[in-house]
Nucleic acid binder design. Structure first.
Length: 491
DNA sequence: CGTCCTTTGAAGACA
DNA sequence: TGTCTTCAAAGGACG
């Protein structure tokens, strides 16, 4: 992983963190705590960085996919170790000191092709996750807030499609100890190892697990119903048995996706919101509210996922899935840009009664510069972040979401932890290498919430609170009669 | 029924 | 090298 190659990325991480979260209104807190958080973070991340540096060659991206198995940039000694560990499927040598109960052992088996699993399997998993039965229970042990540390012993009940993994991981996590220096020595093998161990609902015994990479492509296995749905899109459905499509290997989930899968059900349970778009906004905010340690768990897990994916599908490339979706968002925007009959963006976005929010050209009935800038939407006066961050083009769907979020969520409890009450968080250094806001992101992401919150102060608190201001600041501002927009202008 | 929305992160493409 | 684009999950909403 290139982003991991920078061993000293902690400082950058802090900087990026400031950039990334500067709109959270927590700069002060973060600045105050940066002194030790960076050091803290360095300690926390060092193992991850070292591990990745050791386990993956810098050119892993180019090499790993083109080579098979152990040649993917792993040093020979690690390869050997991989082989050894692969044989020691019952061995208990992995236990992360930093993450006791590290659960990658329960990673579902998401990579096996030819999954006939219906998409609902994941949904079921999510629901079950709310009861502690999520297939990504690998994540569950991470969160001590959500799950009981108690765990049964080695899983004996493999008949259930769900839940076994979590128990498995919790159990197995105690059987495998992590080298004190990190997981570097066994990570690759352990990824597969853990993967193998969790294959199980249909009787895959830990000692008799075939390597996932050598599973017959056409082989449908019982346990696929459970664990192959995550990365292998169910292309073969009962109605389409006649035309078995080539299985689509999905991308490995990143840290945030893993977090989402775990927490979605929780958010749904807490909130009245149902629409994923709104839930994801909340999840995104909660993600930022996580502590570094909590995030690190997911980053670590995601890294394991990638490694596992890499091992299972050495030739797979993210590019393979390019173009899978019918119509890209970008294309739509371009289309609308080229549409001479499209409405002026500022006019459409703000309406006639908010002409003060229009860009200058729009006021002069010229072509909307925000619109032309395709996402950045910088206000000519730079005084309206709600406008700056507005999406490049108004979307009916956004309105839909807007309406969805507008009603308060009476049944939704506040986030488990207040961002302001937590330590400032920083994604791992390797993640921070990409922690920057693209014009798209800066325009389309935060802006939505800001605008949404500004227009709908009664929306979900976590949605409305995604501002650049801490609650106290917001309260003060409101008390002072400042609108969110005005407050933003003063930032 | 297909697409959109929304989130963050990873990876690939491109200048 | 830096920037930009695409995809990953999810499920309601919409055309």
């Amino acid at each position: 992983m290139p982003q991991l190659s920078s061993g000293g990325g902690d400082d950058l991480g802090a900087n990026d963190e400031m950039i990334s979260f500067k709109d959270e209104g927590e700069q002060e807190e973060k600045i105050q705590e940066n002194a030790f958080t960076e050091r803290d973070l360095a300690d926390l991340k060092s193992s991850l960085v070292n591990e990745s540096e050791i386990n993956q060659s810098p050119n892993a991206a180019a090499v790993r996919r083109g080579q098979q198995g152990e040649q993917r940039g792993f040093p020979d000694k690690h390869r050997e170790h991989l082989d050894v560990v692969s044989k020691q499927q019952d061995g208990g040598m992995y236990k992360s000191p930093g993450y006791p109960g590290y659960p990658f052992l329960m990673l579902p088996d998401p990579y096996l092709p030819n999954s006939s699993v219906s998409p609902s399997s994941n949904k079921v998993s999510v629901v079950q996750q709310s009861h502690g039965m999520h297939p990504l229970t690998s994540l569950l042990p991470y969160s001590n807030d959500h799950f009981s540390p108690s765990s049964p012993h080695l899983p004996t009940d493999m008949s259930q499609k769900t839940g076994v993994h979590r128990h498995q991981s919790q159990d197995l996590s105690g059987y495998y100890s992590l080298p004190p220096g990190g997981v570097s020595q066994i990570t690759p093998s352990m990824s597969w190892f853990s993967h193998s161990l969790m294959l199980g609902p249909s009787g895959m015994h830990p000692t008799g697990i075939p390597h996932p990479a050598i599973v017959p492509p056409t082989g449908k296995q019982d346990h696929e119903q459970y664990d192959r749905s995550m990365y292998v899109k169910p292309q073969v459905e009962p109605k389409r048995e006649k035309e078995p499509k080539k299985p689509v290997i999905k991308k490995p989930l990143n840290a945030f996706m893993l977090y989402m899968k775990e927490m979605r059900a929780k958010v749904i349970a807490e909130c009245t919101l149902k629409e994923s778009a709104a839930i994801n906004q909340i999840l995104g905010r909660r993600w930022h509210a996580l502590t570094r340690e909590e995030q690190a768990k997911y980053y670590e897990l995601a890294r394991k996922e990638r490694q596992l994916h890499m091992q299972l599908y050495p030739t797979w490339s993210a590019r393979d899935n390019y173009g899978k979706k019918k119509r890209r968002k970008r294309e739509k925007q371009q289309d609308s840009n080229t549409d001479p009959g499209s409405p002026k963006k500022c006019r459409a976005r703000f309406g006639l009664n908010q002409q003060t929010d229009w860009c200058g050209p729009c006021r002069r009935k010229k072509k909307c510069i925000r619109y032309l800038q395709g996402g950045g939407c910088p206000s000519p006066t730079s005084s309206d972040l709600s406008a700056i961050d507005s999406p490049p083009s108004p979307s009916p769907a956004r309105h839909r979401l807007f309406q969805l979020q507008r009603p308060p969520s009476p049944g939704c409890s506040p986030p488990p932890t207040s961002p302001s009450a937590r330590l400032p968080l920083s994604p791992p250094a390797h993640a921070l290498s990409h922690t920057r806001l693209t014009p798209q992101q800066s325009a389309g992401k935060r802006g939505d919430l800001r605008t949404l919150a500004a227009k709908h102060p009664h929306a979900h608190p976590e949605l409305s609170s995604k501002q650049t201001h801490s609650p106290s600041v917001l309260s003060a501002a409101k008390a002072a009669g400042l609108s969110l927009k005005v407050l933003t202008e003063t930032q």
